[in-house]
Design a protein around this nucleic acid. Structure first.
Lengths: 183, 183, 183, 183
DNA sequence: TATGAATGAGCCTTCATTCAT
DNA sequence: GATGAATGAAGGCTCATTCAT
């Protein structure tokens, strides 16, 4: 039983790593099975199809990207912390975001994938909405909530492919939102 | 003579369209050739390898994305116009940006592609640097030049996958940069 | 289990036959697979590449050409017997030698093949060296050992393409070496 | 007109060189045309098909291998001179013999080629027959004529793939035939 | 004579998947 | 659960040849 779980995890991790550094174009099942130490036909006992494995990779990725928003801080600081946390994650674990990008692109052709991703994003989006609404309520900012939420999301997504600029960009975005709202 | 150019262009356009709606993972030469009305082996007469064709697609894409920056306007307005123009392009011709994203991702495994893309981006980056430097000189903004440049680029890249939010995000970014510098 | 060996052997035999009567210029994998009764893609299950299959053919050929030298006879008779055995083989199984010739030619462009062939030949050459050395020691012949060895080899190789003359040529060579050393 | 002849010759020479170092397996028309400085489709103006070009190569090769037998010498010396001349040719222009070997092998599948080669060989064979008959008549040797002829031919053909042993082998063959017939 | 375009057959190889063991 | 064998579809690419110009 533990065997099963381990093997499954090993396959997911191997798949994740493969996508991270080869993309979907070169993504083949045989090497994944080999990396997990099993025959390629055995892989199908764990994941019926290639798509099933990919779905599991998405789950794996999003499960690692939760909880970067602390509810108790006041809005400006919360935003700063959140952006900082994501920037740090982009710098420290860029593969996570690379794979997300691959999955995002893939979602355009795969409805199930699109649904899953959208769903995962809803949590993030809701937290940002709450953040900006609170900020406006308190008088910290006078901005459009939805627009700000999408700006933050777009910026962070745009950073995926350029981890080296993450820190500086995030700082700039914070500064723009900090005018009149010093820490 | 005209035939040649047409066929070549037809192949590039077909390849572009295929990448736009299938990505590089289902990207196969035979359907491209078929779409251009020629035998798949004839395609190799125009493009020796698949990579050569892809390179031509990149060229095609970037050639369509030039000239969205007017040099004569004052900085704040120039930024607003530029962001607006890109947002419009994203909305009106989202495939252009989708393909760019696919190419961006591909660049991670293909050095030549990476070099080409980086080079194309340099023009854009330089124009943004000039814009922010002028703005600072004139007292329009007091921001970090490089950080602002990267923020704009990251944001716009992040928008590629969400054309529907482009307008609103761009407006928000403009507003953030417009404080104290009304049109 | 037996199936495996059979299929593998069937492929080797089919490949051997194809090379024997078509040479390497028309040598294609599809017909080989068909001759063995399997799909052409299954062939790759047994031999990863075309080269691997060819290497197996070489092995098959050389394994059939061993043991034509009896160690216990006195030199002149041993030579006569050996030449006779090879001549008989050339007459009775000319394909074996035809394929060897094809492989010899191929060895000029394929280092691995060259090494394998050279190695197989060393056994033969060593036996001939021993034969002539013993003959000289006993006073049967007064000839140059190396030159005689190479003469025998060159003659036999030259016969590959003319099985019809094998017997007569071998007899003549024996006669030349028999002067003063009648049976 | 001279152009034509030159081009034709250039093509033949290029084809010869290609066969000499790649064999027929890798023998392609495009590189031949390129080596002669013309488009690959233009080659078909000089040689209608690939086979026609190959036939021309055979002609070219055999035209270079004539006249190694001097009619006026006495038999033993004539044989020695002839073998020496061929050995020298093998050492100095091994490509000629390599290509001959390729053609010999090819003759097994190509009746026209076989006929041409057989015809070319008849001249050589006739000269050898005359040589041995004269030697027997004069009492130089008491050997079988046909067998000796074939032995010489087989030996020399067997040397094609081992130019390095040519000299030593030829000397040994001469010595065998020289017993009782010193120079 | 020379060429570029075009063809169609074909080649080796790969891959996801299935199935009997 | 695990494996090796097998499949069939496909994929990029090559090649001799033809044809209009």
């Amino acid at each position: 039983m533990a065997e099963q779980v381990d093997r499954r995890q090993a396959l997911i991790r191997a798949a994740f790593a493969a996508i991270a550094d080869q993309g979907f174009e070169g993504f083949r099942l045989r090497p994944i099975a080999a990396a997990a130490g099993i025959d390629h036909s055995t892989l199908h006992h764990y994941f019926r199809t290639k798509e099933d494995l990919i779905a599991a990779v998405l789950e794996h990725v999003t499960s690692q990207l939760e909880g970067t928003m602390q509810a108790d801080l006041e809005p400006a600081r919360r935003l700063r912390r959140h952006l900082g946390a994501v920037a740090t994650a982009i710098v420290e674990r860029p593969e996570l975001f690379i794979v997300l990008d691959e999955l995002d692109l893939r979602a355009r052709r795969d409805a199930t994938m699109a649904a899953n991703i959208r769903q995962d994003e809803q949590g993030w989006r809701a937290a940002l909405v709450a953040l900006f609404e609170e900020g406006i309520e308190r008088g910290t900012w006078s901005v459009d909530v939805d627009a700000s939420v999408e700006l933050v999301i777009a910026t962070l997504k745009g950073l995926r492919l350029r981890p080296d600029t993450a820190e500086v960009v995030v700082k700039q975005l914070c500064d723009l939102y900090s005018r009149g709202a010093p820490e």
